[in-house]
Write a protein that binds this DNA or RNA. Sequence first.
DNA 1: CGGCCCCTTGAAGACTATCAAGACTTGTGG
DNA 2: CCACAAGTCTTGATAGTCTTCAAGGGGCCG
Lengths: 218, 218
Amino acid sequence: MLPQATNPASAHAMTVPVGDAWTPLGVVTTASRNGEIFAEGDLAARVYKVMSGAVRITKLLADGRRVVTGFHLPGEFFALEAGEVHRFSAEAVADCQLLAIPRKTILARAMQDHALSQQLWSITGASLDRAQEHMMLLGRKNAVERLATFLLDMAARTGTDDRVPLPMSRQDIADFLGLTIETVSRTFTQLERDGVIALPSAREVTLKNRRRLLQLEG
Amino acid sequence: MLPQATNPASAHAMTVPVGDAWTPLGVVTTASRNGEIFAEGDLAARVYKVMSGAVRITKLLADGRRVVTGFHLPGEFFALEAGEVHRFSAEAVADCQLLAIPRKTILARAMQDHALSQQLWSITGASLDRAQEHMMLLGRKNAVERLATFLLDMAARTGTDDRVPLPMSRQDIADFLGLTIETVSRTFTQLERDGVIALPSAREVTLKNRRRLLQLEG
DNA sequence: CGGCCCCTTGAAGACTATCAAGACTTGTGG
DNA sequence: CCACAAGTCTTGATAGTCTTCAAGGGGCCG
């Protein structure tokens, strides 16, 4: 169940100016592939926005079984939680640039800026929506439906066209979909055989038949 | 998959004063067993606090497969979401008294009360935590572990001692744990046979061996 | 070119779902 | 208060999906 060894190297700070309302509040840091960004139980000192790369959020069971509760792609926030301590770990799926904003800064601003305050709530609410949608997948969908849902979601979030890059490993996908790596691989192959997708490489999917994929989504 | 027919009768408003900071903001309403409190897609006009009874939050797949994403017990808030529209349905598991607070009221207050504003965020964050914990259950736990987790959670939330009332049906539990009603029933029986719990009735469990249950939780 | 990951594929087995029937509970009406 | 009916829960037998165990293929980097 435990996947690749985690590379402890990560997160060297270096100030870089970029252009959006949040940017001036934080600093851009980097995290290298499989590098830990923070761990479950760490003090929640910062909130993050993905600038480039991809991040996975994970939780572990005592015996090592792993769940990936979500992936975060460029433009998305994570660790924007209300608690003082992180309830999950965050790791870089691929080399990342992250905007790290001190929690204190956010909270101080929110004290004086109701719009920001509401935005914080709103972003957390969006995470909750996604979490509930995912519970549906984990609780009631079969392997094909899970993968179809995943691919359509990734396409919606990243794809400009029908070419969808998959920065994460099969094991990451398996732990996200509540399946084993073997089942994920077999299901990819099945969708390819059925002409629903093409697999130019393991890390890139081409959607050949979105209509069919939507039906398969369940 | 679709369980009992839903009883449309519910939610008659009647003003009743009670004692806590939220109470003066809303009105107490009632919902009868299996009555709909609101449906997915409804305008999110109110947020709720359970005064008595129990509520289930559900989502449906197009073909009728159902997921219960959570239960809410007395003292707990629900529908405290940021969006304009409910992303899930809420139904009364048993006859309920609910404090219904108009969303507008909450938002207006939050504009002037930072503590409240933060509290909203915090409550939503707590929901997110629970959701992620539940994803772990749905994604990686087996039937025994799921039921053990559920029982310990219910005990922690309601039980004053080792007697834990279960206001919800087996079907509700099944849809919450991502199992079938038969598997839930068999797993209850198994835990009883193993002396971990006793079942004075279908709707009440007595924890006979918490230590063992904790081990089984996974 | 060789080694190491990562991914794919195959065969067997386990866990849960499905199908089916019976027991118990609860509520209603005579 | 009893009898019936409907809903709920339990149990059994069988089937199916996914997991587990095992091995081989392919790509990337030193």
